[in-house]
Design a protein around this nucleic acid. Structure first.
Length: 596
RNA sequence: GCCGAAGUAGCUCAGUGGUAGAGCAACGGUUUUGUAAACCGUCGGUCGUCAGUUCAAUCCUGACCUUCGGCUCCA
């Protein structure tokens, strides 16, 4: 087997990825033309494009991109072949040391092989494991998208490099289509829709990352929470309430004080509290509180599992740079639950939690998500709390719970928490960013910290195990996803305003209010638009608010006890008797169908 | 937190070293309307905050606040 084949097998790029990766090399050459002293880090193909990380003598601005792009086009048009060869490690090391390319040197130092790949196009020679197009002319239409900071190796303790993101496609049409897709995605950005649909806002005077919900946004959260609440009750959960504050000592017992403190708001210490232990904290999580509830009573093995759920608002001091609309906030409402159980109940409880989550996701019509299953590293068992027996059982239970649902999942060996394996449900937002929503985690550690016990069949105390789980995760983040998923056009059961009654002229207002009363009595969320506007304007506004039903009422409707129904999909249902409409809407809402 | 960009009326945005405009919204009036924007008028901003430079700052400089893009998809 030749060296070249080995390199190619190591990455196995698709033709498109190969082309994009080649574009990254060309971009590096263009940057080198401008900055001869540039130092180069890595430049992989990524989803939708490529990037390259540079260490440059000055900061790039967006204005630099056109210049770099032009140089790239010139290089591409130069018909330069990509040539690869294998160099002995030492030779490559020496070469890059002499050129002061510290990042390349570090990369080589971490490579185990005796030989490394070196690829050249035009005047640019780079360490690379390969897979390029044969010639620069094969690189399709490119566009540089943005500059961004990126830590070397993603480590915040290492130097900050400058990253240029670009995109490349085989044809101009594909590039145009991609750019159009980006624009469309921006239209469903929940931050934009949140303002337009009057759902929520933020204020500098309140705090970054603390959303304020308007009535329509609150209605949406209320409906979402109620749905999860009803569903988890059906799955055997009981709801509890544990307020918003606690003492430092509680978090010392749970150890969060030592491991989680940077995410906690500063403590509140009054004049009476002489010791730090008695100072107050804003609750960043529920587990210590739920554990306290569990521990305050004796428990028999017969009672287990005990499932405590709570819609609690938690406060976490997230770094400012990570705050993003509702997707990452400082005050979040978790649909959190903790299950206290016997070790022999692990499998059943995992199943229960995964089934619950899958049911909720399917009600929302969510299918673009995957599950990450995090297991322990079998080579480092000593890093984890708890014995093999529990871990093996837990891991295989989790795996079969996930596999039984036919969900796409990825395996993260060594990504388990030290206290137990977990599954996370990952969802993408409109702009392609991934967010963790639901999570199910086994915890072998907190029962030890709090010395939890239940009385077994043998009359002796035994240590329970715990599951932490959240279905929608944080209500706020899930709302962000739902807003983007439906582009603000919520199904009837979730729509804050389900119907807008539109009187054609002032003389129809009395009848409009009569209809409103009937709808309200049937539990339909409706409003009357009494503004002195033309019907067309009222329709347009209701349409832009994505209200499912527009009910136009004029002389004909008033005479017939009817409404003229227009759907937000532009469908005109013509005149329908009020009682028939009520039946239709309540039926659709009850079934949580996506129909209108 | 770090790197870059940005912050002008409720929203979308224009603009200048000599203290600012447009459209939509809001408000007042006229209109009483049949399925995506009626017409006329009025109001509205200490140009993110605080300092500094300057005869003069919304514009230049600095700090802070906030927002946006990003911070391993590893040669």
């Amino acid at each position: 087997m030749s060296g070249k084949v080995e390199i190619e097998e190591a990455v196995n790029y698709t033709p498109l990825q190969r082309m994009r990766h080649s574009a990254a090399h060309v971009m590096a050459e263009a940057v080198q033309e401008i900055f001869p002293d540039a130092r180069f880090a890595i430049g992989p193909a990524i989803e939708d494009g490529f990037y390259y990380d540079f260490d440059l003598p000055r900061a790039l601005t967006p204005d630099d991109l056109p210049d770099i792009e032009q140089r790239m086009r010139r290089i591409i048009a130069g018909n330069h072949p990509f040539t690869g060869e294998r160099w002995p490690r030492e030779k490559a090391l020496e070469y890059f040391q002499k050129k002061d390319q510290e990042y390349k040197v570090e990369l080589i130092e971490n490579l185990p092989d005796a030989e490394v790949g070196m690829y050249q196009q035009s005047k640019f020679l780079d360490l690379c494991r390969g897979q390029h197009v044969d010639n620069t002319s094969e690189i399709g239409p490119i566009k540089l998208m943005r500059v961004a900071g990126a830590y070397w190796r993603g480590d915040e303790h290492r130097p900050m490099l400058q990253r240029i993101y670009g995109t490349a496609w085989f044809t101009q049409e594909e590039l145009d289509q991609y750019l159009w897709r980006l624009e469309e995605a921006q239209k469903r950005d929940h931050r934009k829709l949140g303002r337009e649909l009057k759902l929520f806002t933020f204020s500098d005077d309140v705090s970054a990352g603390v959303p304020l919900f308007y009535p329509r946004g609150e209605m949406l959260r209320h409906l979402m929470e109620n749905y999860v609440r009803d569903t988890q009750e059906r799955y055997g959960y009981q709801h509890v309430w544990t307020s918003h504050i606690g003492k430092v000592r509680l978090y010392k017992t749970s150890k969060h004080w030592y491991t989680y403190r940077e995410n906690m708001f500063p403590i509140m210490k009054g004049e009476q509290e002489t010791s730090e232990d008695d100072a107050f904290i804003l609750k960043p999580m529920n587990c210590p509180h739920h554990i306290t509830l569990f521990k305050s009573q004796m428990h028999s093995y017969r009672e287990l599992p005990i499932r405590y759920a709570e819609f609690a608002t938690l406060y976490r001091y997230e770094k400012t740079g990570t705050l993003t609309g509702l997707a990452r906030v400082r005050s979040l409402t978790q649909d959190d639950a903790h299950v206290f159980m016997r070790p022999d109940q692990i499998q059943e409880e995992f199943n229960n939690a995964v089934n619950l989550t899958a049911e909720v996701f399917s009600t929302y019509g969510l299918s673009d998500y995957y599950v990450r299953l995090s297991l322990r590293d079998p080579k480092k068992k000593e890093d984890y709390v708890g014995g093999d027996e529990v871990w093996d059982e837990a891991e295989s239970s989790l795996r079969s719970a996930v596999e039984g649902r036919h969900i796409t999942y990825e395996l993260g060996i060594g990504e388990a928490a030290f206290y137990g394996p977990k599954v996370d449900f990952m969802v993408r937002d409109a702009l392609g960013r991934e967010w963790q929503c639901a999570t199910v985690q086994l915890d072998l550690n907190q029962p030890m910290n709090f010395e939890l016990e239940y009385i077994g069949e043998d009359g002796q105390p035994h240590r329970p195990v715990m599951i932490h789980r959240a279905v929608t995760g944080s209500t706020e983040r899930f709302m962000a996803m739902i807003i983007e998923h439906f582009a603000g056009a919520f199904p009837v059961w979730l729509s804050p305003v389900q119907a807008m009654i539109i009187p054609i002229a002032d003389r129809h207002q009395d009848y409009a209010y009569k209809v409103l009363e009937q709808l309200k009595a049937a539990g339909i969320r409706a409003e009357v638009d009494i503004r002195s506007e033309r019907m067309n304007a009222k329709i347009r506004d209701a349409q832009l608010q994505k209200i499912p039903y527009m009910l136009v009422v004029g002389d004909k409707e008033a005479a017939a006890e009817a409404v003229s129904v227009r759907l937000r999909t532009n469908v005109d249902l013509k005149s329908i008797a009020v009682k028939d409409l009520i039946e239709r809407v309540t039926g659709i809402a009850r079934s949580k169908s996506f129909e209108l």
